[in-house]
């Protein structure tokens, strides 16, 4: 009986952990992109490009993420990551366009990860519109 209670307790703790990740997670303000395609190699490129962006290497970040676009051209997440680069580069019109491209590619029913990326795309559009 104790054993089962322990299992239930562990499950509850695990689920609560998941929910905190789900609901707290990373927001665009964290300055890290939430983009994630599910293709590990492409996601590695997104992570690399995002790191380059945060280091201010915007040109090379753009090249890295365009490479990711070529690998997964129908994935909305790569466009989200690219829109962040354009935003940081002050190319607000391009940032809006890439974010809109991303939004057009999200399916109507999205996972929680995709929801975060979609929120981020919307955030990019708002930020770019505020600044331009």
């Amino acid at each position: 009986m104790m054993k089962w209670k322990a299992v239930v307790l562990v499950c509850c703790l695990w689920l609560s952990g998941c929910s905190s990740i789900i609901f707290i997670g990373q927001t665009p303000e964290d300055n890290k992109t939430a983009a994630e395609t599910g293709l590990v190699a492409v996601d590695n490129l997104i992570v690399r490009g995002d790191e380059q962006r945060r280091r201010g290497q915007l040109d090379i970040a753009s090249a890295t993420l365009e490479r990711a676009v070529r690998l997964a051209p129908r994935s909305p997440d790569v466009y989200v990551a690219l829109s962040r680069v354009k935003l940081d580069a002050g190319q607000y019109s391009a940032a809006v366009q890439f974010a809109q491209k991303a939004l057009s590619l999200f399916p109507s029913k999205v996972s929680w990860k995709q929801e975060r990326a979609r929120t981020e795309a919307q955030w990019v559009i708002n930020e770019a519109n505020k600044k331009r």
Partner: peptide
């Protein structure tokens, strides 16, 4: 996509562009 000079250094990159 891009052009390198004779030393292998990046010279010019042609970016993807989209407009809704």
């Amino acid at each position: 996509r891009f052009v390198l000079d004779n030393q292998g250094k990046p010279l010019q990159r042609y970016e993807i562009d989209v407009e809704q």
